[in-house]
């Protein structure tokens, strides 16, 4: 019982950290989605060697640990003259990393748009850019939505790595509290629960969005 009161008592302090966690994850998600929306079509449509370069980027970011990328950006880049504060370094690392994953999600979604949709748009006189913007992207986004939602949830959790370079987000707040109270079990349970609630709410919200943007009549065809 005492533990419960203790946990309830520390929640307000942790919520300050949650706010930073949400900022980091949403901003880096947005950075990732914008980059991915550029990278994916480049990989599919651009002339060589651009697709190869994009592929290299994706492989590099998927094939190395996010923590290493974060350390590289925060501690490594200054030797090249690029000095970022911990908060920006964290957003950059998460954003670039997420862009690699999101680009792959987009690429898959775009490949699922039937060739005939491209033909229809081209036959009407759409340019490649217009075809992408009006025909491919809106449909691909709907296909990609569930996977993108997973990516956002992953980011919320991965943003805890920011604590390593000193960003005071949710996990780091927890560490402070542990150092102060010596009650690691209760504090980290509280931290974990807050992550759980946020991630559950996020996945619910995405489900709502999906049903709002679903294409009427589509389920008939898929079924």
């Amino acid at each position: 019982m005492e533990s419960l009161f203790f946990v309830l008592g520390i929640v307000p302090g942790l919520v300050n950290g949650l706010w930073v966690t949400l900022q980091i994850s949403t901003v880096s998600f947005a950075l990732g989605i914008v980059l991915a929306a550029i990278l994916a079509p480049l990989r599919i449509f651009a002339p060589e060697p651009i697709p190869l370069i994009v592929r290299g980027y994706v492989e590099a970011f998927r094939g190395t640990p996010l923590l290493v990328q974060l350390l590289l950006i925060y501690f490594g880049l200054p030797s090249l003259g690029v000095k970022l504060d911990a908060y920006s370094a964290c957003i950059l690392a998460l954003g670039l990393n997420s862009a690699a994953y999101q680009a792959e999600i987009f690429r898959g979604a775009m490949k699922s748009i039937p060739e005939t949709q491209f033909l229809a748009a081209e036959s009407l006189g759409f340019s490649q850019g217009q075809t992408y913007r009006y025909v491919v992207l809106p449909q691909a986004l709907r296909v990609a939505a569930p996977a993108l939602a997973n990516e956002l949830i992953t980011l919320v959790k991965e943003s805890s790595l920011a604590s390593v370079i000193g960003v005071v987000e949710l996990t780091r707040r927890g560490e402070y509290l542990v150092a102060y109270t010596f009650r690691a079990l209760e504090v980290y349970v509280a931290v974990a629960l807050i992550y759980l609630v946020v991630c559950t709410l996020a996945s619910q919200a995405v489900k709502q969005l999906e049903s709002m943007f679903k294409i009427p009549g589509y389920e008939k065809v898929v079924a």
Binding site: T116, A120, L124, Q139
Partner: peptide
């Protein structure tokens, strides 16, 4: 090509309307 295509109308076997 865009001008040529804008000058012609193409109807496909599978309609190919934009479903969204």
């Amino acid at each position: 090509l865009r001008k040529v295509r804008a000058k012609t109308g193409f109807v496909f076997q599978q309609y190919n309307l934009f479903p969204h």
